[in-house]
Design a protein around this nucleic acid. Structure first.
Length: 277
DNA sequence: AACGATCCCTGTTGGC
DNA sequence: TGCCAACAGGGATCGT
């Protein structure tokens, strides 16, 4: 599941390929992938022939500056990945629904079997009215200070994990890294947000950059063959470092207790019953 | 307003 | 072996 570390890894691969390049051809073979634009054809028309500026990221969204005051948005959803084909002649992958060819040769492809991801090209007005504008601070670049986060938690009756997953509160954490952060902070995912103490807030804010840095350093988490891969086709290597996600029944790496799995906020959640309270 | 539930989509998995 | 229901989940949307 592409989360902040996977999207950041993708961004770092895309930047040298796209920045300063001109898009010479765009193909969209599945309209659903462009559903955020009023007309899917806008994605093609607004990219073709245009010069690309900086490749940025906010939360799990890639935000790419395009000549003409446009913003090219890519979201990977749950099964999306970017593939950089050095030669546009390379056979098109199954589920490669969108391609953009640069004047330098390489081709950027968006592959997404479940099509929960999307690609859009927004004018400033469209960007401002899209739900993108509701995104909270980026968990990597713009992590809030303890008093700010604590004030967002007080009086909230949702499970803490639900709040960590809410992209309007904090942008970037998904199901895997939320579980990993909660383990490192020693807090259960089903704890009510309003019950989190000051020391626990401090531990959460300490844990977030550590977990995200490790994920980025490893190139993200590739769960299986279907899942996320780096734009060069390699697998991310964070899977082997996961403390709790996907480890139900296995011994906690810290205390040896069996990792438990429960449903919180309609998502599978993994935690150590002894290390997390 | 806050919160929970449901839906979208399809490859994979597990039960019979 | 083959069939099929259940499952995975980010985010939008709807109901309470």
């Amino acid at each position: 599941m592409p989360e902040l570390p996977e999207v950041e890894t993708t961004r770092r691969h895309l930047a040298p390929v796209l920045e300063g390049a001109r898009i010479v051809d765009v193909t969209l073979t599945r309209d659903r992938m462009a559903r955020r634009n009023t007309r899917p054809v806008d994605v093609v028309d607004r990219l073709e022939g245009r010069l690309i500026g900086s490749v940025g990221r906010r939360g799990k969204f890639l935000l790419i500056d395009v000549e003409g005051d446009l913003t090219w948005v890519i979201h990977l959803g749950m099964s999306g990945r970017v593939r950089i084909a050095e030669n546009p002649g390379e056979p098109r992958e199954t589920h490669a629904h969108f391609t953009a060819t640069t004047d330098r040769g390489p081709q950027v492809r968006l592959i997404d079997p479940r099509t929960f991801g999307f690609v859009a090209v927004f004018t400033p007005d469209e960007l401002a009215t899209d739900s993108l504008s509701l995104l909270g601070p980026d968990a990597w670049e713009d992590l809030p200070k303890a008093p700010t986060l604590h004030s967002r938690l007080t009086d909230r009756r949702v499970p803490l994990k639900a709040l960590l997953l809410d992209q309007r509160e904090l942008a970037g954490l998904g199901n895997i890294y939320a579980d990993e952060v909660l383990f490192r902070a020693g807090v259960r995912p089903d704890r009510l947000a309003g019950s989190v103490t000051s020391p626990e807030v401090d531990r959460l804010l300490d844990a977030i950059p550590v977990v995200l840095a490790a994920g980025i350093e490893s190139g993200g988490t590739s769960l299986d063959d279907l899942a996320y891969l780096l734009p060069d086709g390699r697998a991310g290597e964070f899977l082997s470092q996961l403390a709790v996600y996907g480890r139900a029944g296995q011994p906690c790496r810290r205390c040896g207790s069996a990792i438990e799995r429960v449903i919180v906020a309609q998502r599978s959640s993994h935690f150590c019953p002894r290390c997390q309270t």
